[in-house]
Design a protein around this nucleic acid. Structure first.
Lengths: 155, 155
DNA sequence: TCAAAACAGACTAAATTAGTCAAGATTAGA
DNA sequence: TCTAATCTTGACTAATTTAGTCTGTTTTGA
């Protein structure tokens, strides 16, 4: 059986980060229209609409309707962590459900005597520390450094 | 939309670890029949057959056929890392495919100029360091410590 | 020989993923 | 005020993956 890949995220999180990074890079150009993001990233505008809708409802971006409208980051890129984006688009971080970040509904009666639970918690904490210590501002700075001679930046 | 959970593994990996831990704990009782593992863990024997088949083909366990048969670990539990089990049952570690542990088929032409790739690599390495630094022997020792007064151990 | 066990692999239902599509609401500017 | 640009909502769908089930075959110790 051709298996996939372990501990992966879906396109929601992956594309969501690209949307946010695009907004961070074009921050001082006024509202950015979704169509231009979709074109730069070569992704479906309809799909991105779905994703940015979640980002807006969660307060990470602001939408301006009507002509001359578009989207903007709601906060300073330094204040937005990659973990924030992933949690909005993919849910709480948890390699297995018994160590979810959200309050559990004690479905597992053996929690206190569970040896693997300690392991899963260790893994979760390691993931959390990486995604919550990286900000959009860092990624944007990296992107500029990598592409400073290039008219078109890549994400 | 009710979303799931970020960076999770499937039941293949989760149950696979429980199988292996069960085998480690019952190591000196001779071959362990799958049925008894299925009963202790309250999981479907048919499904576990599928999983242990992969574990056997990959050389992590040995199967003894016929009457008085069963399964045994192929190596010392201290030599078996959790990462070995996860890779067999779930595939290579990769939060997104462009940073898969396996050789990539350069599907992404922008790799060198990709700011997010550096981030994904950091996340992958952090995950890998946790799963490859924990052995079955450690989990088994933990389990014994947590359940030493209990006639039935829990995993 | 026979019962207990591993082994093989086709099959399936449900859930998730990765979108598409159509219709409406809001606003800036002519 | 009109209208084009843009956001916003949400129902819908095809493909894939997950999480198993089921039926049978082979091997082996007693």
């Amino acid at each position: 059986m051709a298996r996939g890949v372990t501990l992966k995220i879906s396109t929601r999180g992956e594309y969501g980060i690209r949307i946010m990074l695009d907004l961070a890079i074009h921050q001082d150009e006024g509202p950015v229209v979704l169509k231009s993001i979709a074109e730069r990233q070569a992704l479906s505008e309809s799909y991105l609409e779905q994703l940015i809708s979640s980002l807006r409802k969660s307060g990470l971006v602001i939408g301006h309707r009507g002509a001359q409208g578009g989207y903007q980051l709601a906060k300073d890129p330094a204040e937005i962590k990659i973990g924030d984006i992933l949690r909005v688009l993919e849910g709480p971080i948890a390699p297995v459900k018994c160590v979810s970040e959200e309050i559990s509904d004690n479905f597992c009666s053996n929690s206190e005597k569970c040896a693997t639970k300690l392991f899963w918690e260790r893994l979760r904490d390691s993931i959390v520390s990486v995604i919550d210590s990286t900000s959009l501002a860092e990624l944007a700075a990296n992107s500029k450094k990598l592409n400073q001679t290039d008219p078109m930046y890549y994400i």
